[in-house]
Design a binder for these strands. Structure first.
Lengths: 358, 358
DNA sequence: CTGAAAGCGCTTACAG
DNA sequence: CTGAAAGCGCTTACAG
């Protein structure tokens, strides 16, 4: 081991700047700037010489300096919530991949509470760091977008919202949760179930409401009455699913099938069903929501409504970058788009009697 | 709706700068700077007047300009891998929370492959954005830290590594995976199981190796021979767990218990066990690893080795910030620390015959 | 094809 | 207690 190694990461190298390169090459910083930005008007010899020096000195332009002068940073802000859960992290993964391929860095923020005290301070933090746009990946509840009205929908940079239903004035990307609720319920009806209960997420969440609306409307269309006793509220966790299921069994004893608003809660239902020796799918059909990879390995494998949350993140980045770049091109007509991704039902053994190949 | 609203987020406001505030207050920018940085030497009246103007103009200092002049950004880089999985996202969640409480922003990067082509370009990207330090949250494999030697352990800023076992020269925080493997196996032995198989993660991963070492050493200590036929390799996914379990049943028919290197794979084992009508825990005891919340709702509920990945992220931030701040205080003696967090076993019905209260 | 000047929005010495 | 000057590392017009 040589001496340098012993020092470890103690040693803080000084930054190589455009001045060093210019001096070494005997040109102005201006010309170096042209080279690193791939401008056409540089003599080929000059360009090559400078490129060699850049490599030799291991020069990397400061994005910070560039951001200051250009008033943009090629960085997107991402405000998320509930990262420890599968859904939000899959979406974030889509965001990171797509941002990378579009050449943007990501400044990440996680809210501790869905009901945010002061969203504007979060946004100000991002603005102070000169982000070019923001992805607001916080699922809508009945109150957590009120601040939009208060600030009169005015932002100094584009903000794209994920998983929201209201506020058509602003650009957003969401899954068609209503459609998902319909698909789940239609499938159960088609399998011959009649008394179909529902376990929802927190009723305050827009996603919960829409999934439930899909369930209710589908039953109405089939002339099946829906009462308060036919559903119970969970919190998305498996434990809450188990709890809600117990309540439902009391309130709705004739229930022969159940649509559960996410796969985690469905897992809790399965556990309680096993405990009571309920046969699935004969005595109880179960449909989940999300389509997490694990759901194929529940026992029995779970029929579920698949939503592509990774793609949700990808599309969010695409949309936001489009808006940013349109704006920079000086396009004044900016019409907010609302995008809806369609979920798909994945049929497995928790709702069909015959064994299908798995 | 008024006119302003119709314009939506089209309108790009100009940034309010320190000059505007200074001009409005009739002082120099210097004095405003003192106020926003809470320096003591400002006349109380001046301070108050400036603060009012700051509020009135909605002024927020540019972190970018500050970063340029101070050569630091109060931003940490985070390079992660496999965000769509539960573990890494829980760790990331710990990182976001702790970074926020320490006053640091986060620049997020996700590798597409664990075996990285060019880690240095990832780091250069972060350096170009003036991050103060980096958390390298990419699980170690036998080859993906080779670049450390190539660059001779020299970084221009501190880098803290997560989930690594080699390279004691660099600061790191990891879970004691070896201990976890021991705990799992000791528990199975204590329950009276004798023929204990193992499903590992990809053998190339340091975490897999250590968990397996714990299993093997514990059996050796108990004078139980261990052969190649007693373990199989998975990829962490439930599907791979199911596959590996089928192989093991062939190779090791007398197996009466199994230690599975994560909960997802254990779920796959449970599924296959149900299919074959194996009684758990009577005919087969099962222990997982991770302690994801869902594991309490598997059927039967899964005994598992709990690791606190959220805390792992928190501690990573604490350590890195300590290193950064020591360095800024000019402390030259920086001795890299390796921290190991201890896992705990959580006993549930998949390994104990008597029903314990759940 | 190349360079001198100005400036992005701050902070850091240095005077007074 | 306050301000004039210089500068962080770049890019943007503007000349030539």
């Amino acid at each position: 081991m040589e001496q340098r190694r012993m020092e470890g990461s103690l040693h803080r190298k000084k930054r190589v700047t455009i001045k060093h390169v210019a001096h070494e090459a005997g040109v102005s910083t201006q010309t170096v700037s042209r080279v690193i930005n791939n401008r056409p008007d540089v003599a080929p010899e000059t360009r090559q010489r400078i490129n060699e020096i850049i490599k030799k000195l291991d020069y990397h332009p400061s994005v910070v300096a560039r951001s200051l002068i250009q008033q943009r940073s090629y960085t997107l802000g991402v405000t998320t919530y509930g990262l420890q859960h599968v859904g939000p992290s899959r979406t974030l993964s889509g965001i990171t991949h797509q941002a990378e391929s579009k050449g943007y860095a990501l400044l990440l923020n996680e809210l501790v509470e869905n009901e945010i005290g002061n969203p504007q301070s979060v946004i100000q933090d991002l603005l102070a760091r000169q982000v070019d746009g923001i992805i607001w990946a916080v699922p809508e509840t009945s109150t957590n977008l009120k601040w939009l009205e208060e600030i009169n929908y005015e932002f100094s940079i584009p903000i794209l919202f994920l998983t929201i239903g209201s506020h058509p004035e602003i650009p957003s990307v969401s899954i068609n949760n209503y459609k998902g609720g319909c698909l789940a319920t239609q499938h159960l009806l088609a399998q011959g179930y009649h008394s179909i209960g529902h376990i929802s997420g927190p009723y305050d969440w827009w996603e919960s409401q829409r999934r439930m609306d899909g369930w209710r409307d589908t039953l109405h269309k089939a002339n099946i009455p829906v009462s308060k006793n036919h559903w119970a509220e969970g919190t998305w966790s498996s434990a809450s699913g188990e709890r809600a299921f117990k309540q439902l069994l009391e309130k709705y004893p004739e229930m022969d099938a159940i649509f559960v608003a996410n796969d985690q809660m469905a897992l809790g239902v399965l556990k309680e069903a096993h405990k009571r020796n309920l046969r699935i799918p004969e005595e109880l059909g179960i449909v989940g929501f999300d389509g997490i990879p694990e759901s194929a390995h529940f026992w029995p494998p779970l029929t579920t409504v698949y939503q592509d949350q990774h793609q949700l993140g990808c599309i969010a980045v695409d949309e936001l970058v489009n808006i940013i770049e349109d704006q920079n091109r000086g396009m004044t007509k900016y019409s907010p788009k609302r995008l809806l991704l369609e979920p798909e039902i994945v049929v497995r053994a928790s709702t069909i009697q015959e064994n299908i190949p798995q």
